[in-house]
Write a protein that binds this DNA or RNA. Sequence first.
DNA 1: GGGTTTTACTAAACCGCTCTAGTGAAAAGG
DNA 2: CCTTTTCACTAGAGCGGTTTAGTAAAACCC
Lengths: 343, 343
Amino acid sequence: MTRPTIDDIARRAGVSKSAVSFALNNRPGVSPATRERILRVASEMNWRPHKAARALGGARADAVGLVVARPAQTIGAEPFFGLLLAGLQAGLSARSVALHLMVVEDTSAEIEVYRRWTSERHVDGFVVVDLQHRDRRVPVLEELAVPAVVLGGPTGHGSLPSVWADDREAMLSLVDYLAALGHRRIAHVAGDEAFHHTRRRMRALKDAARRLHLADAVSVPTDFSDAQGASATRALLSAPRRPTALIFDSDVMAVAGLAVAAEMGVAVPAGLSVVSFEDSLLTRIVHPAITALGRDTFALGGQVAAALLAAIDEPGSVRDVKTATPRLTVRESTRAPYTERQG
Amino acid sequence: MTRPTIDDIARRAGVSKSAVSFALNNRPGVSPATRERILRVASEMNWRPHKAARALGGARADAVGLVVARPAQTIGAEPFFGLLLAGLQAGLSARSVALHLMVVEDTSAEIEVYRRWTSERHVDGFVVVDLQHRDRRVPVLEELAVPAVVLGGPTGHGSLPSVWADDREAMLSLVDYLAALGHRRIAHVAGDEAFHHTRRRMRALKDAARRLHLADAVSVPTDFSDAQGASATRALLSAPRRPTALIFDSDVMAVAGLAVAAEMGVAVPAGLSVVSFEDSLLTRIVHPAITALGRDTFALGGQVAAALLAAIDEPGSVRDVKTATPRLTVRESTRAPYTERQG
DNA sequence: GGGTTTTACTAAACCGCTCTAGTGAAAAGG
DNA sequence: CCTTTTCACTAGAGCGGTTTAGTAAAACCC
């Protein structure tokens, strides 16, 4: 048995195709009685709209794209990504919009996909992640005039709306907390300097250090990998006057750093405090559990989805959305530094 | 400027629509010279097929579906899932087939999505994960007669083709290894008994224990969460004659278990050996690094993609695919048990 | 050279749905 | 009671491709 079309419904209900279309789309042009009859027949026949047929008439594709230029490893490794995906998905599927995911090699390939999917009318809009300094993708998306929402900000995303958290504020409060505990030598195992948020965090740390007259406040950039996170930690802990507190830009690096401390015989938190700028399962399940700046990544995905859907409905209507500043969850990995401990 | 259609190309090349279609699809019916001219014009005008228009003619949707009934948390937490996704994606995008991801509440909702997407011609096939005992999804997919590939096996997936690894074999070799080290009391923090592979692993452990005359070989089922993994570990380590080796069904639980051991003052590997049935970044970055059964999850995704594409091209042609049996990577978390140590 | 086959191409139907223009009848208005 | 407006509905074009049936010319064959 082949699937029913509106023609089948029309025949069975004794009306025209158009009447059926009106009824099914809640448009004026049919009487309440007829409308109800058509709907009943449609549901009896278990009718479902044919997506492609709808999309052909110039309508929506009812799908949005997420193109990621990252090595496959990271995509599995970082809880952040999976949660964001799940949150996006939840926000979109409530309006039955599909998510087209594509993993590519590099930014050039990513841009190529933007062009292709836009011209093929494959998606109605894009979610852009990993905002970079002087991001090449922004002008392309502006030129394509396709709805898009950038995750990250508050600047550097041109005319595209963005959903962002205040990294600077978070870093400042984090350093305040560590300084209050008595830490004067704080190091920061940062992410990739190409990323906007990494730069902002590094700048914030420097500013905080100046304001608080901290002895030392180095930022060491990495590529976000556990390997570089580990080696940066090793280098920092090998220095003659080692820092008493380490801030890691990601949960993966924080866990890797924790392992390095254990391997080097540096007790956490007695000899070293560890903080992660990203919270997740990872920071909770290791021992000692890691103090972390947390945000609800699943909810973040939902906010991005909402912003994108709004941008698709009414291009130009969406303004930047500032999400809640990440809040500190104190666990077992932070304490006053040994030399200044009271008890 | 609006996007070009084949009509535009036809007009510009001085031929009919049909000739253009033939040329663009490598079909007979046009002379080599004309074909070349048409292709040149098409590329000059930067023509791209309109997906929906193609799909309308009864053709492929050029997309496959992955519907997952899991809490959002797990999806972010387990590296396995992200890697599988990336692998699937890579395998599919090589043939420019999109992946439609959907996260739902439960199996009933999942089945609903199968029905809807099939009747809407939204996808050409499905990837089915988390195969369960007496899986309700299998008969539905069989009835819908839609191409689908099941991840998991070797049994319980009806007439659907499956891609599977030999869990039993892996468990047997793992227990052999631990026994060879001298362990006689081995416990297994298992996953959810509803899952097929969990049952198979539990059975394999029991068989191995009998064959090797092990004193003890308990399997404790959990829901795969870090919380239950931790509490199962706590219970096992609190028993009067505690096991000397623990096998965890997932990397997340293994890491959680490791933390519990640290918290309880049980040294790993001196006082307890820990093995994970799943390998990932997680098992590598903690300290001590965890001995784990590894498989290439990214490649697994690729194999699933290949099988599904084949099933779509030629339904019924795909047989079950057995993937490489997971191999043991020995790290720092396993050693001969204390009481029997030589040195 | 007349008939058959092949080749290169065109015209038009078709996929399922939306939407505009058009139609006939009922309701409203003077 | 006739005109105008509104209402409920239909016919049919159009979206951008694919594909079938048809056609004229060229190639082939004894």
